[in-house]
Write a protein that binds this DNA or RNA. Structure first.
Length: 129
DNA sequence: CGCCTGACGAAAC
DNA sequence: GGTTTCGCCAGGC
């Protein structure tokens, strides 16, 4: 916006020759699709499950692409580490996320999941990573 | 061809 | 302890 943060200094385009590894995205889809009903997880948790902090950003990005790819992923069960429904704005309707979560028994207050830890679903733990 | 933004997270100040 | 900046990878302009 008005203020530009971050120092733009990344000129390391590590791009292998024609290496389209969608494995990352695919893995995210798989994990997201395995989220049990009534549970929630965080982008960072999934990213960590992959083995490294590949950057939780890509996880969310994968969701975005998944939606476009007609892939059904309960993205509404995925929130940021704060338990806040950050991605609600990216849904068809900003209320869809809250509604779905509430419908599953999760209490959402002020766009934030109540007892996030209680409903937190760790892929690493559940999947046995 | 080059730089920035982006559904986050953690470290640094 | 609060706020800010960097870091990651990829796609978009």
């Amino acid at each position: 916006m008005a203020t530009k943060k971050k120092s733009i200094t990344k000129l390391k385009s590590i791009k292998p020759s024609g290496r389209k590894d969608e494995n990352f995205f695919e893995l995210v889809y798989e994990i997201a699709g395995q989220i049990p009903k009534g549970r929630v997880t965080s982008y960072g948790a999934i990213a960590r499950c992959l083995g490294t902090r590949m950057s939780a950003r890509m996880v969310g990005w994968a969701m975005n692409g998944s939606r476009k790819a007609n892939i059904k992923i309960p993205a509404h069960r995925v929130v940021n580490r704060n338990g806040m429904l950050v991605g609600r704005h990216h849904f068809k309707t900003p209320t869809e996320m809250e509604t779905l979560l509430k419908k599953e028994g999760i209490k959402v207050k002020n766009n934030t999941i109540v007892d996030f830890e209680k409903h937190f679903w760790d892929p690493v733990k559940e999947l046995g990573f």
